[in-house]
Amino acid sequence: MEMFFHGFMQRAFQATFLISLIAPVLGLFLILRRQSLMADTLSHISLAGVALGLLVGVNPTFTNILVVVLVAVLLEYLRIIYRTYSELSIAILMSVGMALALVLMGLNDNGATLSINQFLFGSIVTISVEQVWVLLGLTSIIAILYFFFRKPMYVLTFDEDTAYTAGLPVKAMSILFNVLTGVTIAVIMPIVGALLVSAIIVLPAAISMRLSKSFNGVILIGIGIALIGMMTGLVASYELGTPPGASITLCLILIFAMTTVFKTLLRYMKIGKLSHKNGVS
């Protein structure tokens, strides 16, 4: 119980709660647009943004957001160029991000490695009040956008041609979505770490997709799963002194394994019931 009395843990719980609300929404659209790896690319790019900030002596969060937003727009452009092999754009930019981050870190010899480590693996100790407020603002923006634009986004994710024919601004919507994903990654990366931020965004939606038939159901169940997985991961991180991103990811993977076993058992039980019924009649 003592953990709830620490200011840094209170902020960590607040931040985790907010991340649990936005991750399944972004994650579901990323999966359905076959852009699950985009989050990974943006997190690598984020690292370059952080390294740039540390090198020029500006708050890394600002350089991070700036770089990620630019790349999010570029990603959409590359996705159009390589329409058939859209994963190519992800592969190209992921390498660029990592290479750039390493070069910028190499140019900086003022103890940047320590800060970079913090961004790579995440830290719950360093979450500031400002970060929580920024996250609250971002969550509010995503919630409002989802409330108003969930129908256009549903059609866009189902089929882009249908969306275009229906008169939706497909390109603008795609860019806006990429930018929102980029900003989200830039904001939550210091908490959960660049290496696992994409897993935390994608996993809750990936699990809930197997549990619900309907679109809204996937989002709601995804939020529930994210809350359970992230809170448990956070507590584990505090108790065991492990990195928060890794602990949360493992908790989500555990939920994934449990739901898979549960679903398989349920299917076998159904088949057993059916064959029993047929045998009786």
Binding site: L32, K151, Y154, A166, S212, F215
Partner: peptide
Amino acid sequence: FNAGFPSTVLELVQSGRYQKGKW
């Protein structure tokens, strides 16, 4: 279309009404 797309038949067909000014 994507076999894993999480939508019921009803949700998908209802989405046809959105472009009649129901976005």
